[in-house]
Design a protein around this nucleic acid. Sequence first.
DNA 1: TTAGGGTTAG
Length: 568
Amino acid sequence: MLRRCTQLRKINEGRLVCAHVLKSMFKHDRLIHNTILNMYAKCGLMDEARKLFDEMPVTDMVTWTTMITGYSQNNQSDGAVALFPQMLRMGLQPNEFTLSSLLKALGFWPSDKCGRQLHAYCLKYGYCSNLYVGSALVDMYTRHDRIDEAQSIFCLLVNKNEVSWNALIAGYSRKGEGEHALCMLQEMLRAGFEPTHFTYSSVFGALSATGSLEQGKWVHAHMIKSGGQLIEFVGNALLDMYAKSGSIEDAEKVFYRLLRRDLVSWNSLLTGYAKHGHGRECVRKFEEMLRRGIQPNDITFLCVLNACSHAGLLDEGQYYFRLMKKYNVEARVVHHVTIVDLLGRAGLLDRAKKFIEEMPIEPTAEIWGALLGACRMHKDMKLGAYAAERVFELNPNDSGPLVLLSNIYASAGRWGEVVKVRRMMQKNGVKKEPACSWVDIENKVHMFVANDDSHPHGKEIRKMWEEVSAKIKEIGYVPDTSHVLFFADKQERESRLQHHSEKLALAFALLKTPPGSTIRIKKNIRVCGDCHSAFKFASKALDREIILRDTNRFHHFHDGSCSCGDYW
DNA sequence: TTAGGGTTAG
């Protein structure tokens, strides 16, 4: 009966059985005690499990293993790790159950030192070939960012199953390595294993990081063919993959086809709308969610506030920020950052500063960074310099504020100040992250770096961009050289501007794709104002839809305008 | 009587 209650997580009935048993002739039975411990652990009641454990007159290896497993499954790694040496001191030998549970806990440990020690123990006592221990080792190493070690343990596993494959694929997914995750899925299929919901949610998660729409569609089609159902975990990952790969339409379709919708489903859709600049749709959907009685969490509010900020919905954003209290959701630093962003983008820089000064939490580098970004947008040098100083005080290693500050000076043509900031960056060893763009052509990813002359098709690409540039200048494009960072004359600044990575990627895509097809480009940093303007004109002059994903959001360029309404 | 793998925000 206790086992039945444990399986069904029926804790109230379990407690009744417990009370009865502990008054009966079995009250000193160790086996019964172990079963009760397991029931408490599975129901998440580790305090009660611990109380019983401390009161038990006699314990055995299973008792300790059950406690370690309980702590591990309830995300209480310290509890699991503390028990292990005590268990050894008692002279109890751990078995494969103990080791796999402890390894799971060690995946969440601050360093990999204990994990490596336990790995050595497993080797010494011959447990590494055990399926459970081996899979747990793979998982532990991937969580400590040691995917090579995980891969070699996985390769040495003679008997593999779906779980061992999933542990490795999830590892690649957490690292954002979509290509590797996909390769492993293909290998898994070749080896004759059937992917599970765990596999699909990991792979979709990995592909959402790389934004590979075609590959994502292939995996989705495979899942449908093999009869996979759209239950929450996998459906939410699929929805998110479509939203992050640039197809909000497919994300919506998945949302409506989900068998059940939980909070993550709603949050993922809202995030998708926010990233694609569908601010009003995001707000409408959020209102629908509230009408349906679904309790929002901090992530929901963050999505909605972001959407309001990006869509310029000033009043709505402030209203929803106040609404958080009504729903008992605490406003964290990130929510405050969004409000600074909201006010700042709307040009209310003084109000944004006042908001920072009056907010109940201590301002962080991110808060001042949001104000600095707004100052960049509205070319407010004085407040921008003040915000940049605050960011730099709080986070001297971040190159972001100095880059933004030098941009502010560059926009105003204050080249002397630009040089000073750049010297400061050199002095502090701060480097700007190099800008890269990627474009998928026929399932192959092509990367472009700003001002890079080494591409094999470099000449053709530049020639193509010159043609595009001439066409868009005819219909009104004027290069905005304020986005060039360094000291140079006008002609050189204009020439540098023409070699931004996203422009090179667009030129290459124009060379390699049929007329009229949609072009999808990804960028590792925020798109610059000049490229944004050039892409708008290009979408009209060339009659092409261009979808650009940058670090913050998607830009859909069509017929001379962008989905962000120039407000990003 | 005891075990290993998955989704959303910044």
